[in-house]
Design a protein around this nucleic acid. Structure first.
Lengths: 121, 121
DNA sequence: ATTTAGCGTAACCGTATAGTTACGCATTAT
DNA sequence: ATAATGCGTAACTATACGGTTACGCTAAAT
């Protein structure tokens, strides 16, 4: 079977990652798939609360659900994180560069724009 | 002067990045610092709305404000993105690994847990 | 000295979020 | 057949969020 690679939007991924509990759920799942109840018991909030976080993670395709008897096993799917990674990619050059030289560059850029700014109306 | 490197929490950064407009603002600032008004004019929402987004980005230390006469120049600060990057780092191994072998690994992990799961009360 | 420009903040509003408890539906155990 | 387990969903509540308009302060322009 061919390795069909799907691309996910960074949009839903970023949104899903915004909540600390959801990031912690993913962190937990790095150790292996776990049933919903076990995931819930790892957090100080109620089971339905976790259930809702899991739904959001499912929608973001960050986890996959698999029914196993009366259990629902959640498995990590790291694919959408690639989109986050490539968004970050555009910024790596900025934090890798020497910061003071970056500052100079940025200020230079604004200087260039400055005249245009004045002219604008 | 020493290069004092500060570490920022991933928490506020993730939260700030959750909104598409704020990510777009950062994208805009990659081209160089800009005054608030110019930033606002690049978006279909009102100026106060952008002002609030900028406040959030400021709190996350993703931008820095600098007064220049009656202008307020906003400058990108990529530092907190490092925290996001290192969070992602723990996941790179997962998406780099062959997915089918990852699946096998994860299922194996659960199998190992399985007996413990049964015993739990 | 007034006026205009640039921009943040306050007050307000509708909607989304994150949490709760109550309930219901499968699946396994007895 | 009945009871218990695992887990999602509905209904509800409080708070956060993102947007708006109105306002006010400071800096430049006239």
């Amino acid at each position: 079977m061919r390795n069909r690679s799907v691309t996910y939007s960074a949009e839903t991924a970023f949104h899903a990652l915004a909540h600390p509990t959801r990031r912690a759920v993913l962190d937990l799942l790095r150790q292996g798939s776990q049933p919903a109840g076990r995931i819930a018991s790892a957090f100080p909030v109620s089971r339905p609360a976790i259930s809702k976080h899991l739904r959001l993670l499912r929608r973001a395709h960050l986890v996959q659900e698999r029914r196993e008897g009366r259990h629902r096993l959640y498995q990590l799917n790291p694919e959408p994180l690639k989109a986050v990674d490539s968004w970050l990619d555009q910024y790596r050059v900025f934090w890798r560069a020497n910061l003071s030289s970056l500052k100079t560059f940025v200020e230079g850029e604004y200087a260039k724009e400055s005249s245009r700014l004045q002219k604008k109306k």
